[in-house]
Write a protein that binds this DNA or RNA. Structure first.
Lengths: 340, 340
DNA sequence: TTGTACGCGTTATCAT
DNA sequence: ATGATAACGCGTACAA
């Protein structure tokens, strides 16, 4: 391995001079500089970031801890975090927790060992205890998508309550009164929010909340099939379903299709989170879209600001982004009206 | 920052003993071990991976360099690489090149500085020169999805020629003879392969290759609109379009829809790469799917084997995976038959 | 402008 | 079973 010393020897200078050249530090004779540069090129010297990190205690690395990159929502966030970080010369370590608190805790431990400069995390529980080690080691941390209790940090998330309310109201305005909901995991703030928004909308329109129409899912596609089966046997049958995330929306759509029902003619369907490519192909699904790209960018910028400035101690910010209700109609025709 | 020394002092031992305990090394008195463990817990000591890396010249980090995580194909690979790596205690740095050789070169440089233990890369050109620094620094490297000239490394990819041939033959069997193709970027092996497969299929069926039906795209969605416009004005008009990747397939579908054409009634469409969620929603698009998950897993395993064993010098492997032709029909009815 | 000495936190090597 | 010493590659602090 070629080191500063090797370069220094070849250039006939001291190691520190090489260091100065590499880092474009001032106070180096131009002639010396070119001589050193030549030696660097000749030896194909590449500075060792580990050694640099060890001295500076900065790794120029941040971690992105999310539940599953496979979901377009998280994919978009990942991309946008990576872009923002790369612009400022930071790199991103990607971690998938699968909503599993153990995986999360394990990752956090390893990330501490790696001395990442900061973490962007979507916690798997609303309980901040898993995150406390971060606090203890003073690692800047931005929480995305969700809220956590007992853990002070910057938060960047969408207004899920408002989104869910509008989505539900959209259905109500189409004449639906029996609106089923596939909810998210317990103890996750987004799930609670969306449930709240749903209930609010119903109450605002004097529609009673019927617990038999509320199913608790897990934000994954699989669970939806069982729920759809159950919902179809409730009487009076619901005329619309609100899936609280995109994957469950897809699952519901599939399940309905298998059951021989058309969407939206036989059953209206809306869901939280967009399904980007899908909506290009099948543009008939009304959706409450979060600006995932913005969430990622804002979170990364916030984190990098905390890292690079003395802003660590400043009070934490909670940034709540608006969602966008995307009403997809078929050829200008209003779809999903309640037939009942 | 708490170090081995702090722990050692508290436990009344030498730093090296702490190190032994941390690494579960043999030859430590059980009593000493518990004493040290207690000190570790008390001080919340977390070993510094940088320092460890500096000594061991191993970072337990691999890089995944791809064109765009936003594309479900790459997303799936990313997920599968991360899973495989995590199982063996390796971490993944994610890099998006956007098919831009400059970004690629820049990333490679930075990854060399970080001394990543290995790289999984989808090169942006078929020219290995950008990758040569990796060779010089003896970084194990697995090339995925594409082939490169002048750069020896393991390769994991799909059989694009066969896939494209089958996709084209599928259209031919449905009666199409005027089959347009939206090709990929020049100098990328997958683009060439798919073009070759397409031409082969036509030739096998004595259909002349018509250059006016072949458009060179860039694997991104945007370019498709212009192409569709052009293709619709060719006479005789094509009756089918073969998009050589999923994003361009989506673009074509959108463009066709805007032009007031239905798929597949007015224009048949097939594409390379699946669009997972979309096909759940709109299951009428015939597609040649790569096993992205397997590509990622195989690549990661291969890389980790090279890293952890002395297999660095062994001769390189090229693993070519089969693709799957997914024919999606509407309610059992054959779709996309040529009406002409 | 250039160089010397030291330390970042860990562990391999060689003692004891 | 335990410890002293040195070294990984770099950059700060200080000296020349």
């Amino acid at each position: 391995m070629v080191t500063v010393r090797d370069v220094a020897k070849l250039a006939g200078v001291a190691p520190i001079t090489v260091s100065r050249v590499v880092n474009n530090a001032p106070g180096v004779n131009p002639l010396t500089r070119t001589r050193v540069s030549k030696a660097i090129a000749e030896l194909h010297y590449v500075p060792n970031a580990m050694a640099k990190s060890l001295r500076s205690s900065k790794t120029h690395t941040i971690a992105l801890v999310l539940t599953d990159v496979t979901n377009p929502f998280w994919t978009t966030i990942a991309r946008s975090v990576e872009d923002t970080a790369a612009q400022k010369d930071y790199h991103v370590i990607l971690c998938n927790t699968d909503e599993n608190p153990e995986k999360e805790a394990n990752y956090i431990n390893i990330l501490l060992q790696r001395r990442v400069d900061g973490i962007i995390i979507a916690p798997t529980t609303d309980n901040g205890s898993v995150l406390l080690p971060l606090k203890r080691h003073n690692i800047p941390c931005v929480v995305i998508d969700r809220e956590v209790h007992g853990f002070k940090a910057d938060v960047v998330r969408s207004d899920g309550e408002q989104g869910a309310r509008r989505l539900t109201e959209h259905l109500i305005q189409l004449g639906h009164r029996r609106i089923a909901m596939i909810s998210g995991p317990a103890h996750i703030s987004t799930a609670e929010e969306r449930l709240t928004g749903y209930c609010q909308a119903l109450q605002n329109h004097d529609i009673p909340v019927d617990k038999s129409l509320i199913k608790q899912g897990n934000y994954k596609e699989g669970s939806s099939f069982q729920f759809v089966r159950e919902l179809l046997s409730v009487t009076p049958r619901p005329t619309a379903i609100f899936a609280t995330n995109n994957f469950m929306g897809v699952g519901v759509l599939r399940a309905l299709r298998e059951a021989g029902l058309r969407v939206p003619e036989d059953m209206a369907l809306v869901c939280f989170d967009d399904i980007p490519q899908a909506s290009a192909i099948y543009p008939f699904l009304t959706v409450c879209a979060q600006d995932a790209s913005k969430i990622g960018a804002v979170a990364a910028e916030l984190l990098l600001k905390r890292i690079t400035t003395q802003a660590r101690r400043r009070k934490f910010r909670e940034i709540v982004l608006d969602t966008e209700l995307i009403i997809r109609k078929s050829c200008g025709q209003e779809l999903g009206k309640c037939a009942a």
